[in-house]
Design a protein around this nucleic acid. Sequence first.
DNA 1: TCTGGGGTCCTAGGACCC
DNA 2: TCTGGGGTCCTAGGACCC
Length: 439
Amino acid sequence: MKKKIFLFGELSLMSSIRFTKKIALVDCNSFYVSCERLFNPKIRKKPVVVLSNNDGCIISRSNEAKALGIKMGEPYFKAKDIIVKNNVQVFSSNYSLYGDLSRRVMRTLKRFNSDIEIYSIDEAFMDLSNFPDNEIADVGKEIRNTVLQWTGIPTSIGIAKTKTLSKVANHIAKKKQSGVTSLIGIENLDPILEKIEINDIWGVGRQLTKFYQKNGIYNAKQLKNKSNTWIKKSSNVLSSRTAMELRGIPCIDLEKTASKRKSCVVSRSFGKRVESFQELKEAVANYCLNASEKVRSESLVAKSVTVFVRTSPFQRNFGYYSNSKTIDFPIATNNSIEIVKAAVSILESIFKNGYRYQKAGVMLTGLSNDTERKNLFSSEKDEKINNLMRSIDNTNYRYGRSTLSLASAGVHKKWNMRREYSSKIDTADFYCMPKIRIG
DNA sequence: TCTGGGGTCCTAGGACCC
DNA sequence: TCTGGGGTCCTAGGACCC
């Protein structure tokens, strides 16, 4: 090929407008707290926390609450002193509200680029490579402003060449007023990576942090400069991928199409300890109904079901017991009745008298597409059961969960979880709409 | 005394993420 | 008294086969 000769002007144009690979990570700030604040302006500038299921742990904190020293994941009862003393506003989690607002945020993001990967309820990766490098920071700011204006949710945005680096950028953005950080076009990232502690890197958890520190690696720059073969040998491929990504080499793709899930878990801690087989059975039956409904809604069938029960790992003075067992179905299924029946038979075999059970759960595994099964083994009886399941799902969708249930699922539900501080906001309920006085 | 070699598949457990 | 829930992936080791 002939070498192309550029005129001076053309050359400078070419070098200023570049379209390198650019990944953005958009992360909602204190997401659950932000959701509660949206419908309750009085708590905007105040310290706020949101609790996990059963009001157990603190899983979302406003900046004011963080400043008071309340830690992520801390048990609520341990933080209670600080909370009471500082008049911190407390909320039980309201997942249907958070889910709804999450969908609104994601929809807004898709307006900028439909190639997004919804990574969690409050995070999404976006491919912004189609925007020119020199405009990328402004694009980030525009995304942030639009999300804020359309949904009311504040976000932080980090932009870089790889997913791992966009996480780093996001980490920096969180501390900035503008909420946007781009690492695009920076030749040497070492001074920035040096300030990122090893445990703040995406993919480096507690065990790896311990291991790296033992080997003298304390920050992202040091990990970046460690040899791949050493990392792979002494850890695994995932860790070497992390290091590559820190070097700006993309190893983790954006997953633009949501892949079908491989398993489905429903488990809960009980509002109070459960000792009787009957109550445990009701709980397990309920979890089965939820899990099979979820699986049906995604047109999946399960190969096997696992049930587990356990007493509290924190209160061993009553004796600790934990057990689980799995049953394979002869033919993959999503039929509630069949799943409940199998789960109850498992429970009968693992239940032991004399323990104070704290938690139980059901796991559907080996999920696959419903259609494949239908082609192979469909019968008139299957069709009848499918119709029955469909009418149950439709009724429950319309009139609320557990309008139609099974007798084994019980009615009293004394074991149900605690939710003492729920805001009870329901975006699907007309009467929960905020009232605005005009004039 | 001395007990092959290489491949696949499955599972349990551990580590990570939010 | 009170400590969440729901996912994914990787590895080591065992079972099995020829």
